[in-house]
């Protein structure tokens, strides 16, 4: 307990003594590119290559449509729609499912995680249940979910919920177990009741791990979306990509994939920002500005 706390504290208050990248180490004033610039250049090169091979007619549009077609499709699907819904309606349907599942996972996962982290009995009961279903790919138990709960909205949200729930529980339990003994003892010596301990010491201490759990969970949840929307959906990003694939509308497939990727990236950035705002003490670089 104490050793983990020490490791945690050292991590949290570590001042990086050695520059991590070569570029920071060399003090030469020569022209150096920032990492962001290099990444941007990589994406740009990829786009130019894509545009080049498709414009030169090296690849049939059925396999890889040129980028400009995707942009045109973006406009068409945004305004006129695809399969009875616009891009925004598809996206809205998907986000609504993922966020319903997220809210349910947070509301259920945090108490379950606290219980596992605090009580040996709760751990004995709940830990195996979660560890049994967690490694199974959602597509594997999807048929069972359909047999039990039908093909309605509930089944889709349940599938995403299961994907988000486990990481939140594991993250919370982990964070709860790592709360420093002394922190708890001092609070008890200040007269904290068991409930006050959880509310004012355990939960805030575990917050960084809970946020990491949410981040990982949201990532898996978003990737489970396509599987969830295979279940007789009539809207959603997963549904849009799936039905476009059935009609070999490759540009809509690529458009769908691109939007899914951008949203995933946005969610990740949003949660990192949230972590910085809510638990700045747990980040190695506490540049508070």
């Amino acid at each position: 307990m104490i050793s983990t706390e020490l490791a945690h504290e050292q991590h949290a208050f570590e001042i990086p003594l050695l520059p991590r990248h070569e570029e920071e180490a060399s003090a030469t004033p020569s022209r150096r590119l920032s990492t962001t610039t290099i990444s941007t250049l990589t994406i740009a090169t990829l786009l130019v290559l894509w545009w080049g091979v498709t414009s030169a007619g090296l690849i049939a549009p059925l396999f890889l449509p040129p980028p400009q077609n995707i942009l045109i499709k973006f406009w068409q699907v945004s305004t006129h729609g695809f399969m009875d819904s616009t891009l925004w309606q598809h996206l809205g349907a998907s986000l609504a499912r993922v966020f319903s599942a997220l809210v349910a996972s947070v509301l259920l996962g945090i108490p379950v995680g606290v219980a596992i982290g605090q009580s040996r009995i709760a751990k004995g009961i709940l830990d195996p249940l979660i560890e049994i279903y967690r490694p199974i790919p959602p597509l594997a138990y999807l048929p069972l979910v359909v047999i039990w709960f039908g093909i309605g909205e509930f089944s889709k949200i349940l599938l995403i919920f299961l994907a988000i729930f486990a990481p939140i529980v594991i993250g919370t339990a982990n964070g709860v177990r790592q709360v420093s003994n002394n922190r708890i003892r001092v609070a008890q010596s200040l007269g904290a009741t068991p409930w006050q301990l959880i509310r004012h010491v355990v939960l805030p201490s575990a917050l960084p791990d809970i946020l990491v759990g949410i981040r990982i969970g949201l990532g898996t949840g978003w990737s489970t979306l396509v599987a969830a929307e295979l279940v007789a959906a009539t809207s959603g990003m997963g549904f849009m990509v799936q039905s476009a694939a059935q009609f070999l509308v490759t540009d809509v497939v690529i458009l769908g994939i691109a939007v899914i990727a951008i949203i995933a990236f946005g969610l990740e950035l949003g949660l990192r920002y949230l972590h910085k705002r809510l638990a700045p003490w747990s980040l190695p670089n506490r540049d508070l500005g």
Partner: peptide, 25 residues
């Protein structure tokens, strides 16, 4: 009241809120 070698303070609270923690409880 107990004081440990590691301060066991609460990093999400500022100095005055840490000191007032017992009174809050």
């Amino acid at each position: 009241g107990v004081i440990f070698q590691d301060d066991a303070l609460l990093p999400w609270l500022n100095v005055v809120d840490n000191i007032a923690f017992g009174l809050k409880l």
